[in-house]
């Protein structure tokens, strides 16, 4: 029987980080379940188009509620799930990164579709508000 290749494991770990960052994935709660940590402290430079800043207070409960509805209708079914594990108690994200990932999708690194043509910037910011309300970032 072959032994487990630790070198290959290390390489794979690097790939994991790349994939995880592209998808914006991996919550702290899942790290305990066996997935390597992604909170390298880096904010990925994922887009040349900057998101700018949120046009409203991201802690506004009404905006959070609206964002939750949008998330549940478009992001939860089959993929992220409601009360998504990926974002509950999540650390290490930034508003701009989350905004850009929703807008641009997985860009070939993951199957996540881009939502920039579907939602207005305001609607994307509402999803950001909802995800921020779940996490610790």
């Amino acid at each position: 029987m072959k032994k487990h290749d630790h070198k290959r494991g290390a390489k794979a770990f690097g790939m994991m980080l790349a994939a995880a960052i592209a998808f914006g994935c991996l919550p702290s709660s899942v790290q305990a379940g066996g997935v390597p940590p992604s909170d390298s402290g880096q904010t990925p430079e994922s887009s040349e188009n900057h998101a700018g800043t949120a046009p409203f207070d991201l802690s506004d409960p009404k905006r959070i509620k609206t964002g939750e509805g949008t998330f549940n209708a478009t992001c939860a079914a089959y993929c992220h799930g409601q009360n998504p594990t990926l974002f509950v108690d999540r650390t290490g994200l930034s508003e701009e990164y989350v905004y850009n990932t929703i807008r641009d999708g997985g860009k070939g690194a993951t199957p996540m579709p881009p939502w920039g043509d579907v939602f207005s910037p305001e609607e994307i910011w509402e999803i950001v508000a909802y995800l921020k309300s779940l996490g610790k970032w």
């Binding site: 790939m15 790349a18 991996l26 379940g33 089959y78 993929c79 799930g81 594990t85 990926l86």
Partner: peptide, 20 residues
């Protein structure tokens, strides 16, 4: 059952999920 997709695995060839 219900589960959440978390993203891609270490090798980028499969999705990973978390059982609720």
């Amino acid at each position: 059952g219900a589960y959440d997709v978390l993203g891609l695995n270490t090798r980028g060839n499969a999705l990973i999920a978390q059982n609720k």
